[in-house]
Write a protein that binds this DNA or RNA. Structure first.
Lengths: 147, 147
DNA sequence: AGCACATGGTGAACTAGCTTCATTATCTGG
DNA sequence: CCAGATAATGAAGCTAGTTCACCATGTGCT
C-alpha cells in the first residue's frame, strides 16, 4: 500500500540520484555545484557585478567572491572593471565557460527527456499536477509555521 | 505544455524544499544532516561498531569517527567498549538520542501525510508509479553509461 | 564643496563535512 | 607464533559557507 511516506521517499530518492548524476557531469568539467550555479547564472545574464549574483543566487557576497575566485582560477570566468563605477567588478564568462555551460544544460535536458519522454501524456500530466498540489500544500504549511 | 524538463524541475524543487525543512527541524535539535543519518541508523540498529555504520551509510570509516565524535560531544551517543573485541567501539544512542530520533521520524511522517493525504488514491498511485518508472529508467541509463 | 551614509568587494578566522595517507592496536588463520 | 587483515584514529588539506571588520568608491543632502 504505497502511502504518502512512500511517495515522498521516492521523490527524494530521484532527486538524490539526479543530483549525483549532475555532480558527476560537473566534476568531469572541473566544476562543483556551487561554482556551476554561478556559471549558469552568468551564462544567461552576461557580465554582471558580483552583487547581482549574490542576490540572484541567495548567496552571501563574501561567498560569491570565493566562488568567482575559483572560477577565475580555472578559466571559466574573468573579472573586468566596470566602465564607470570603480567599485564594481564585472564577472564575465570566458568562451570556455560559455561552452561548458551550454553543454551541461544540454545534457540536463537530455536526461529529462530520457526519464519522461514517451510516457502516456495523461500520466505525466497527473504526475505534474500532483507535484504542483504538493508544492502548494508545502508552501501553505511553511507559511503557517513561519509566523 | 508541461514537458519533461518541467516535471524534473518540479521534482527537484520539491526535494529541495523538503530537505530545507528537514534541515531546519534537525537544526533545532542541534543536529546536522550527516549526524542525523548516523543517529537514525543507530536508532533502528542499536549499538554497533563504527565499521557497521561506515558500510551501511556508504561513508568512509574516517568520516564516521568524526561524526560520532560530534554526536558524543553533543550527548546523542556514547562510545562503549566491545566486550570481547578490544579494537572495536560500540556506538550506542543515549536516551536523549533515541528520543530525538523518534521525534524527528514522527515529524517527517506528519509532513508526508500533510502533503499527500486526502488526495484521490488513484492520483497518488499514478504519481508513485511514474516515479518508479522514472527511477527504473534512470538506473538503466546509468547502468549503460557506467560501462 | 564637503560630509554622511550606502554600496561593492575583500581579508581573516572559524565551522562542517569530506578526502587521503600514515599509524596504532588488536584479532585471526595457517 | 608470526603475517596479514581489521578497527579506529592522527594529521593535513579541500570546498563551502559563516561572521566581523575593513577599505574604496559613489551618491545625496546641505
Amino acid at each position: 500500500m504505497t502511502g504518502p511516506d512512500t511517495a515522498l521517499d521516492r521523490t527524494l530518492e530521484l532527486a538524490v540520484l539526479v543530483n549525483e548524476d549532475m555532480d558527476r557531469a560537473l566534476a568531469t568539467d572541473g566544476l562543483t555545484r556551487s561554482r556551476a550555479h554561478v556559471l549558469f547564472e552568468l551564462h544567461h545574464r552576461g557580465p554582471v557585478p558580483q552583487r547581482t549574483l549574490s542576490t540572484a543566487l541567495q548567496v552571501s557576497a563574501r561567498n560569491i567572491t570565493g566562488l568567482v575566485d575559483a572560477l577565475v582560477a580555472t578559466g571559466f570566468v574573468t573579472r573586468e572593471p566596470h566602465p564607470t563605477d570603480r567599485r564594481v567588478v564585472l564577472v564575465t564568462p570566458t568562451e570556455h565557460g560559455a561552452r561548458t555551460a551550454a553543454t551541461l544544460a544540454a545534457g540536463r535536458h537530455q536526461l529529462a527527456s530520457a526519464l519522461f519522454d514517451g510516457m502516456p501524456a495523461n500520466r505525466v500530466a497527473t504526475y505534474t499536477e500532483v507535484l504542483d498540489e504538493v508544492l502548494a500544500r508545502f508552501r501553505e504549511l511553511t507559511a503557517a509555521t513561519a509566523r
